[in-house]
């Protein structure tokens, strides 16, 4: 599961279209011998010194390197794989290794720190996931916007493995205050073409010259900005807050269902 996050972290350091050329890492499994709280703390200090310039001070992403807290890595799934990437870097990219001037212990402590940010520790939840699943497809109408295992709508994040990326508390917070944390991928846009055509929907992408929209009927639109009479961007979520329409018990059940959407569990 950590594979995607490291991918997310490194993909931005690679040049588009050439990701497939990165050599595969050693498949040799090896457990991290340095995983105590002290090791994680040392890893955090090492990260600040060696990695934060690109990946942000707390691995949340910076101007040169994306977040390493997304829950998954691409270029390594095992501790040994993470060790290799951190130690050796990724050839022909800006991701450089720290191995030469660092002891093995230090590199393992960096692995421990990254693992701690993307903890796989499962916690107990109070709700009933079966009832939650019914609420998801019924009263909550979540599937009209979200996809799970290729079923559902396209106007919200795919939730197939959401339990790997969000804790129960975070999921509850998402349901109660969906506007608290809206990634720009989920902003919406309204555009009026000079011929009068009006399109509203998800803001797929936007640049100096053009913008792309997925409308409510799932049509893809691409406009040159010079052809638009008007355009408006909405930076809030199109998802409703569920605090009033759901009881606390229903929210617990829905959280239990969502938290169970984990690659490890299924």
């Amino acid at each position: 599961m950590l594979r995607k996050a490291l991918h997310a972290g490194i993909i931005g350091l690679l040049i588009n279209g050439l990701i497939g050329s990165v050599p595969a890492l050693s498949g040799q499994e090896k457990d991290n011998p340095y995983t105590t709280g002290q090791d994680i703390q040392s890893g955090e200090q090492l990260f600040g010194r060696n990695c934060s310039r690109c990946h942000g001070l707390e691995a949340g992403g910076g101007e040169r390197g994306p977040t390493l807290r997304a829950g998954e890595f691409q270029h390594a799934s095992t501790d040994a794989g993470l060790f290799a990437v951190i130690s050796d870097g990724i050839p022909n990219t800006e991701m450089v290794g720290v191995g030469r001037n660092r002891s093995e212990q230090s590199v393992w402590q960096l692995v421990a720190y990254l693992r701690s940010l993307n903890s796989e520790v499962r916690v107990e939840v109070a709700g009933n996931p079966s009832i939650g699943e019914e609420l998801y497809g019924g009263k909550g109408d979540c599937s009209s916007c979200h996809m799970i295992d290729a079923e559902g709508g396209r106007h919200g994040p795919d939730l197939s493995t959401i339990g790997d990326r969000r804790s129960p508390d975070e999921l509850l917070s998402d349901l109660l205050t969906p506007n608290a944390r809206v990634q720009q991928r989920w902003w919406t846009m309204r555009a009026v073409h000079r011929d009068g055509t009006e399109v509203q929907g998800l803001r797929m992408n936007e640049g100096t010259y053009s913008l792309r929209i997925l409308d409510a009927e799932d049509n893809l639109w691409s406009f040159l900005k010079r052809d638009l009479r008007q355009s408006e961007r909405t930076e809030t979520s199109s998802m409703p807050a569920y605090g009033e329409s759901f009881t606390s018990g229903e929210l617990e059940d829905l959280v239990a269902y969502l938290y169970g959407l984990s690659r490890g569990i299924r």
Binding site: N50, R53, L57, E58, G60, G61, G62, Q184
Partner: peptide, 26 residues
């Protein structure tokens, strides 16, 4: 952010760092 840092020859010596607080499109 500010952090304490110790100079070690050949290692990064930056004393802190930074994050972009809002989405890039802002």
């Amino acid at each position: 952010y500010i952090r304490e840092d110790e100079y070690v020859a050949g290692e990064r010596f930056t004393g802190g760092g930074g994050v972009t607080p809002l989405p890039a499109a802002k």
